[in-house]
């Protein structure tokens, strides 16, 4: 069994919002989430905007504190790790991130060289002449000397994202968290960045946590997928099973709404859709949060919240359809 990198237990994040002068309410961004991430895995969290997937990553990175629940990194409590300066630095070295928007993730007043030297400066490590050049070669920016002196506005979207990946790899981390790494890129560039990520993962035995709303992209890279809906994980399992044999009606609907790039396929002609919109996180529906949109709902669904059921080994579904005892 491979080492467990992150273990997340009963994680909750509520935000207090003021509605008018006296009314207050909680936004339940993440509500009772559990999962494990193992070494060398590409663990993907899929969901639509507002599903809570970005909040989960912010908590994993220690940028936000959980309201309730526990995050363990290599068996140690994350909040304790971060409260001590030395162990915090160690955690930072091991867990790096690449963000969604390549336009705002590079400081516009710094050159690529400054940006790539920053990680070493922060951790008081020696920078050799070739270090930054090697990093650029690693992410396929060739010749590196040409790129070192540039500012971010002199790079294309794909090139910027490559610089972000190089920055994340600089300290040789164990885990890289990728928040929508290709969302803002053109199709051909998407494929290239995806390939780069796959190669780097194999080369350095990296663990990836990928957040995305673009389901098809994950097909090429994911080992495990968890599908989030309105702050909860509705289905979790091996990527192959999720794609080929989805169980939860939401996962099914999500997969169906991907238009295939082929005008002749039958699916293109009908384009099955899931009606309705995700619920407001302030006031989620009672029972199963998906029931107002679910084509298979029955009398239990709007009353009782479904429990997590393990239908195959390590494949969990939270849906009453699979819980008829």
């Amino acid at each position: 069994m491979k080492q467990t990198i992150f273990s997340i237990q009963d994680l909750k994040k509520y935000y207090l919002v003021k509605l008018g002068l006296f009314k207050k309410a909680y936004i339940k961004a993440v509500d009772d989430v559990n999962f494990l991430i193992r070494e060398g895995e590409a663990y993907c969290i899929v969901g639509e905007s507002g599903s809570g997937k970005t909040t989960v990553t912010k908590m994993l990175l220690g940028l936000e504190l959980p309201t309730e629940g526990k995050i363990e990194f290599l068996g140690k409590d994350l909040s304790k790790l971060l409260s001590d300066a030395r162990s915090a630095k160690d955690f930072r070295k091991n867990v790096q991130a690449v963000f969604q928007d390549p336009f705002s993730s590079l400081n516009p007043r710094k050159t690529v060289k400054d940006i790539l030297e920053k990680p070493f400066k922060v951790h008081n490590e020696k920078i050799e002449m070739e270090t930054t050049e090697r990093l650029l070669e690693e992410v396929g920016l060739i010749p590196p000397k040409e790129f070192l002196k540039r500012y971010s506005h002199q790079l294309s979207g794909g090139q910027r994202q490559r610089v972000c990946i190089a920055r994340a790899l600089a300290l040789k981390p164990k885990v890289v968290i990728l928040d929508e790494p290709t969302a803002a890129l053109d199709v051909t560039i998407k494929a290239q960045i995806l390939n780069l990520l796959i190669d780097l993962k194999e080369k350095y035995n990296l663990t990836y946590i990928i957040i995305s709303h673009e389901l098809p992209l994950l097909k090429s890279i994911a080992d495990k997928i968890s599908v989030m809906y309105a702050g909860k994980i509705v289905e979790e399992g091996a990527a192959e099973r999720i794609f080929n044999n989805p169980k939860h009606p939401y996962t099914l609907g999500l997969l169906e709404s991907i238009p295939p790039p082929d005008p002749k396929s039958a699916k293109t002609k009908t384009l099955p859709t899931l009606e309705g919109e995700p619920p407001s996180p302030v006031n989620p529906p009672k029972g199963c949060r998906f029931h107002p949109r679910c084509p298979y709902k029955f009398d239990l669904c709007d009353k009782i919240e479904p429990e997590k059921v393990e239908i195959y080994s390590e494949h969990y579904v939270s849906c009453h359809l699979f819980n008829r005892k």
Binding site: V187, T188, K190, A191, L194, N195, I198, P216, L217, K219, S220, I221, F243, I258, P260, P261, D262
Partner: peptide, 13 residues
Amino acid sequence: SSQAIYQGEVKRL
């Protein structure tokens, strides 16, 4: 590219 992404076969590009 779009077909490889759709079919999950980016590696085979």
